[in-house]
Amino acid sequence: MKVLVAVKEVATVEEGFELDGTTIDDRYLEYDLNEWDDYAIETGVQLAEADDDIEVVSVSIGPERAEETIRMALAKGVDRAIRVWDDTLAEAELLDVRTKAELFEAVIEAEAPDMVLTGVQAHDDSFGATGVAVAEAAGFGHAAVVNALDLDADAGTAHVRRELEGGVEELTDVELPAVLTIQTGINEPRYASLRGIRMAQRKEIDVQTLEDLGLDAAIVDSPIELTAMYEPESESNVELFDGDADAAAGNLATLLREKGVGAE
């Protein structure tokens, strides 16, 4: 049995960032493994640990810089890694959900996995849509926002819980092959061991181009165009307590007491 895990390197924005047109100046971006994908990796690795016949392969669409993050996945126990990239993808303004679904579909065709795990959402673009779009493109079943998984490989069924709003969980059975979008909290992602990190350094990352995947450059053409990026206009008139911590805390304490907080 084979499990594909989608692994995205995402940027987080640092304090005091500055915008440069429709991008954020690279000085203020920090790159890291997408939080949700960390949980997806752990889900895949735990399945493989419980069953020797399960291979876990990570798939990332991203530039060479992403290899650092991909090696993190390898260090945590992913068996091998695929990175999809070439000049055409590098030049694309925005990889929309439809484009990413086509890329994943091609990888799925080549790899024929039984299960694909993605995160619920990517921290940076926050589409929250790629996994389910991939399922439709590949003709797989799916479940979105999964916070518990019990795999019955023999029956070809994934028993999952979907986390709905307000503390309600839906229990669902999904036929394999399927895509599950993994929610944080489903498990406890491990830290990579030193041995794992060393082994990951030696592993080859399989870079696939559009041509390798049999795809046309036209798939990156998107009707969706990012036209503006700005800091949200604050509607609030927040009153800030300035000064050092003691002074600020003193003023906040006065306010809280006025509101009746702390009164015996």
Binding site: A11, D124, I224, E225, T227
Partner: peptide
């Protein structure tokens, strides 16, 4: 985007 730190507009043609 980015955990509500920036707002964007996109057009759909």
């Amino acid at each position: 985007m980015y955990g509500s730190k920036v707002e964007t507009t996109v057009t759909v043609s």
